[in-house]
């Protein structure tokens, strides 16, 4: 067969690294967007689809929704939120939290999710990853790994939103998950999550250098420099952010918004306990990275 072997050469440009994704992560409890520290002490910030819409309009590359309670009530509420989001937002949406069966996956995909994040059920039954990848395609399956650093420097995988240790080594599980067909890994440091102290660079780098698929670093971002560090030193292929973005928006969104019952942000206004997190917008983060030669998608030609 004739191929285009030489046909595209005329257009060859100097190879540049592909743009790096910045992904807001929204933890959801019932109908609300919540945020905690070490995945605990959750506080309500507002309605997830409102934050999601703001992030979409300000240049988010994707969104991640994690149902942090995953109760039956929460599931129906989550599906409603996913449906509402999918009607308004035209970037990829990954949904995770309590997905245990292929039917669970099918249900959230039908509601409008593009990908699913699997954690507890996957680690308990690794063949679930393979079955999900076969059924829905590897590109639909993100395996979420929550790691806690051990005294010997290794990392143990936790499940149930950082509540339950498994005895499973994070690196071994990451390699296995990739072999089973995961399309991407979402790697969260429980130690750093919500603290604003920066990503666990060692955790991210070890995983990113051990698997052939992209690793989304999550947990610990408190300032823009941390994002830069996890890309350059942590070898992250993508970065998930929560507190930095949520706190910035919660504190700057229109003041006529009815906060009653919507979000408890008085603790944010007071600055108590969250002093290490310095809020920033997606535009500020991407501009800052761009100025340091890290390629991000940083334009929206239609809207601009």
């Amino acid at each position: 067969m004739v191929t285009e072997a030489n046909a595209l050469e005329g257009s060859a440009r100097t190879a540049v690294g592909a743009p790096l994704r910045i992904i807001p992560r929204l933890d959801i409890k019932g109908p609300n967007l919540v945020k905690g520290v070490h995945l605990e002490g959750l506080r309500v910030l507002g309605k997830p689809h409102e934050f999601a819409r703001y992030y979409y309009e300000s240049g988010a590359d994707e969104l991640i929704y994690i149902d942090v309670v995953a109760s039956l009530y929460g599931r129906n509420s989550l599906l409603h939120t996913v449906e509402q989001t999918a009607r308004e937002i035209f970037i990829p949406l990954t949904v995770g939290g309590g997905l245990r069966t292929l039917d669970d996956i099918r249900t959230v995909l039908r509601a409008g999710a593009d990908k699913v994040a699997l954690n507890t059920a996957a680690i308990q039954s690794p063949s679930f990853v393979r079955d999900a990848a076969r059924k829905f395609g590897s590109s639909t399956v993100v395996v979420s790994i929550e790691g806690v650093r051990q005294s010997d420097g290794s990392y143990e995988a936790y499940v149930d939103n950082g509540r339950e240790p498994t005895g499973v080594n994070v690196l071994e599980w990451a390699v296995r998950a990739a072999e089973l067909g995961a399309g991407e890994l979402l790697v969260t440091s429980i130690d750093r999550e919500g603290t604003g102290e920066g990503f666990d660079l060692s955790l991210t780098r070890q995983v990113a250098e051990s698997v052939p698929i992209q690793v989304i670093a999550c947990g610990g971002a408190g300032r823009i420099e941390h994002v830069h560090d996890v890309i350059v030193d942590g070898r992250a292929d993508a970065v998930a952010l929560a507190s930095m973005l949520h706190y910035d928006y919660a504190l700057t969104r229109p003041v006529d918004h009815d906060f009653s019952g919507e979000g408890n942000i008085e603790y944010l206004r007071s600055g108590r306990g969250f002093g290490r997190v310095h809020g920033a917008t997606l535009g500020e983060i991407k501009t800052w990275l761009h100025e340091r030669d890290i390629v991000c998608r940083h334009e929206d030609p239609i809207r601009a």
Binding site: S11, L20, R297
Partner: peptide, 19 residues
């Protein structure tokens, strides 16, 4: 490329150049 692994699958935003 430039010290960064370009893994497969490609999962990201990328540019379309007119050809």
């Amino acid at each position: 490329v430039a010290g960064r692994a370009q893994k497969v699958p490609q999962v990201n935003w990328n540019r379309l150049h007119r050809f």
